[in-house]
Design a protein around this nucleic acid. Structure first.
Length: 571
RNA sequence: CGGGGAGUAGCGCAGCCUGGUAGCGCACCUGCCUUGGGAGCAGGGGGUCGCAGGUUCAAAUCCUGUCUCCCCGACCA
């Protein structure tokens, strides 16, 4: 591609609405342009990177035996009603009517549609296992789209669905996808972790997320410093030594805490360690019930764990009004003593006694409280968020906390959708069996964003070779000098012939502009063609990632470049 | 959905408080000049100031409504 003929609108300045580095760089390099909140144009340069990722995904999915197809983006309500998700999904599902008043939605994921295909076409156990995938535009009407392609409403996703006769088959399909995903993200040049994850509203029994490690990540993950355990904090288990609480030593006693609401304020005011306090959170479940949850003062509630324990889909912290009604005190002073609600407590509270709690009265707390004596707890359970330094649930190691960008997620679905939609086959004995499913997603645009997030410097992007929009950039310094022009053109032609993705900067610009753009767009290999080098019969070669500038003889350049590319692609 | 902020030329911004019909830098166009790290000089094009209504002789500026975008947020008990 000739730069002078290409569509690559780079900017010196960053648009004011970009926050994270990948978003800024995608705007500055003209990879994307916003059309509406969370909805983007993929400009030519950005599309090239997306296509590279798609191609890697395709190759690895095919290698793992999956088969590509394409489903519609617009899907009829009937299928969603059958699975129960027309009611369940909420506002993220963008619904609309066609001219005949029929209900439709834009597909946020395709379990229903794929299961419909399989139940129509697959009758016999001999037709499975089968794993079908597509790479397609999805739409989820996110509450808060942000960070460019990292959380868009419209985005490109690879989604695969496996069907097996039994759990053993489904487990094998899952394992295959796990390995395929590892290969995909390794090939994309990403530093990532596969972590145990919550299954969320997709459903199913177990799942892993593939997390690209980056400070700007929206998710927190834990990993053990000495074993392989890694999990999303939403899911991370906490191992608690089963020590009983010491016998209460102090008497329950009211203390005045005027204006002191938060744990930090109360602990500082009373001069006690926050670890010697217990906070009482009032939550409202999706059935409208209020439940009190006790946590050690310095711990944080994990809503997902609580949700799972209570068997509800959603819960929220009670509003100030609700807290006032339930406890008789403004929020900040709730406590378990005399409270007429279900009381659950985190395991850490079990081994505590003589702690500080709210008194259910404004400006008042209780010191010397102990469970069993002053109030009773319905159940103790693992309800808190894992923290840095917590003991690993699998070994004697400690947990570390990282931030990550979720680029892939694989689920064992079980029979949730096949049961609801009736996807069954006959087995060898003629008996009907409900198919066991798995589903496997990769955010393609998000993978590109994550790659930029991990590979950049103050001057711009530093593309990993496998997903770089171009592999080589030839910077022709002064196109008006015939020798320079001819040499650069000749190299360009030779590289094209070798099948390289090469961009020739043949613009009549000053060198400074060309070098700045070269740094910004981050093509991995840069060849500078100038009169200075040509005097010695050489081109100047430099990797965007850094390292020495080297002079390469003109007639060796193609050879050197193709070798470097092959090495970087691992081919 | 709640809280905060912002909409003025393609991008980044000033002007608004104290009304008088719009400006700066970059980008763009023309010419000269220049070619190893975003050059210089000269000339030029481009904006119904998000939209609607109101106040006023007069509105980017004051008032009301509305739309859009960005940031923060269930972590407080």
């Amino acid at each position: 591609m000739r730069y002078s003929q290409y569509f690559l609108p780079t900017t010196k300045e960053t648009p004011a609405d970009a926050e994270v580095i990948s978003h800024k760089l995608m705007l500055r390099t003209g990879m994307i342009r916003k059309v509406a909140a969370g909805i983007y144009n993929y400009m030519p340069f950005g599309l090239r990177a997306i296509r590279k990722v798609e191609q890697i995904v395709r190759e690895e999915m095919n290698r793992a035996g999956a088969i590509e197809l394409l489903m519609p983006m617009v899907t009829p309500a009937e299928l969603w009603v059958e699975s129960g998700r027309w009611e369940q999904y909420g506002k993220e599902l963008l619904r609309f009517k066609d001219r005949k008043e029929g209900d439709f939605c834009l597909g946020p994921t395709h379990e229903e549609v794929i299961t419909d295909i399989v139940r129509r076409e697959v009758r016999s156990y001999r037709q499975v296992p089968v794993n079908l995938y597509q790479i397609q535009t999805k739409f989820r009407d996110e509450i808060r789209p942000r960070f460019g392609l990292m959380r868009g409403r419209e985005f490109i996703m690879k989604d695969a669905y496996s069907f097996d006769v039994d759990d053993a088959g489904a487990d094998a399909a899952y394992e295959k996808m796990y390995q395929a995903y590892r290969r995909i993200f390794e090939r994309c040049g990403l530093r990532f972790r596969a972590v145990e994850a919550d299954t969320g509203n997709i459903g199913g029994s177990s799942s892993h997320e593939f997390m690209v490690l980056a400070e700007s990540g929206e998710d927190a993950i834990v990993s053990c410093d000495s074993c392989e355990y890694a999990a999303n904090v939403e899911k991370a288990e906490i191992r608690v030594a089963e020590t009983g609480a010491p016998a209460p030593a102090a008497a329950l006693q009211e203390v005045a805490t005027p204006g002191q609401k938060s744990i930090d304020e109360v602990a500082a005011f009373l001069k006690v360690d926050p670890r010697q306090t217990v906070k009482t959170l009032i939550v409202t479940t999706d059935t409208g019930e209020q439940v009190a949850v006790l946590l050690r003062g310095d711990h944080e509630l994990n809503e997902i764990k609580l949700c799972r324990y209570l068997g509800c889909n959603h819960l929220e912290l009670a509003s100030d009004d609700t807290v006032q009604k339930a406890t008789g005190a403004p929020s900040g002073y709730a406590g378990p003593v005399g409270l007429k609600l279900r009381i659950l407590a985190d395991l850490a509270v079990k081994s505590m006694s003589d702690f500080v709690v709210g008194a259910n009265r404004a400006d008042t707390h209780l010191a010397g409280a102990s469970h069993g004596r002053d109030f009773s707890v319905e159940a103790f359970a693992d309800l808190r968020q894992a923290e840095h330094g917590d003991p690993c649930p699998r070994c004697d190691g400690r947990l570390e906390i990282w931030r990550g960008i979720e680029v892939g997620h694989i689920f064992k679905l079980g029979t949730k959708y096949s049961e609801a939609l009736g996807a069954k086959v006959q087995d060898e004995s003629g008996k009907e069996r409900t198919l066991v499913m798995g589903c496997y997603g990769i955010g393609v645009g998000r993978t590109v964003a994550a790659a930029i997030e991990q590979n950049n410097d103050a001057n711009g992007i530093i593309w990993p070779m496998p997903i770089a929009p171009f592999q080589v950039l030839i910077t022709m310094l002064n196109p008006k000098e015939e020798a320079v022009r001819d040499a650069a053109e000749e190299l360009y032609r030779a590289l094209l012939e070798k099948g390289c993705d090469v961009l020739l900067d043949d613009r009549d610009e000053r060198p400074g502009s060309k070098f700045k753009d070269a740094d910004l767009i981050g093509i991995p290999l840069r060849v500078t063609v100038g009169a200075r080098g040509l005097q010695d019969g050489a081109f100047e070669l430099q990797a965007r990632a850094g390292g020495e500038r080297e002079m390469v003889p003109v007639d060796k350049t193609v050879e050197v470049l193709t070798a470097r590319i092959a090495a970087a692609l691992g081919t």
